[in-house]
Simulated assay, not measured.
Amino acid sequence: MTAIPSLLTPGCIVRHPQCPDWGVGQVQSVVGMKATVNFEERGKVVINLAVVDLDLLETDRD
């Protein structure tokens, strides 16, 4: 499922669709249209949600 920015909250588990080798990531923070995500194989990355549609794997509400 593509993540809608308003659904992303700290703790959500996501995947970057163009960079599957980064592994899964956990959202650390979301400010406006930017999310900081800590990926297993890449580390912390700031993602512009206006450009990248992250794949939402699970939410912190699951």
Rank of each mutant, 00 (worst) to 15 (best):
V24C: 10
D53I: 03
T36W: 00
V31S: 14
D60F: 06
M1Q: 07
S29K: 07
L56Y: 09
P10V: 03
G11E: 10
L8A: 01
H16P: 00
D55H: 11
D53T: 03
R42Q: 10
I4Q: 12
L57E: 11
L54S: 05
Q26H: 08
D62H: 07
K34T: 05
D53L: 05
G11W: 07
E41K: 12
F39K: 10
V52R: 01
F39T: 11
T2E: 14
L56T: 03
A50F: 02
E58C: 14
S6R: 14
S6Q: 11
R61H: 12
A35E: 15
L54D: 11
I4H: 13
E41C: 15
R15K: 15
A35S: 14
V51P: 02
C12N: 10
G23K: 09
T36C: 00
G11Y: 01
P17A: 02
L49V: 08
Q18C: 10
R42A: 12
I4P: 01
T2H: 12
V24D: 10
L8Y: 01
F39L: 15
I13F: 07
N48R: 12
G43Y: 05
L7Q: 06
D21E: 13
V31D: 15
C12W: 01
V37K: 04
A50P: 08
Q18T: 13
M33H: 15
A3H: 06
D21T: 10
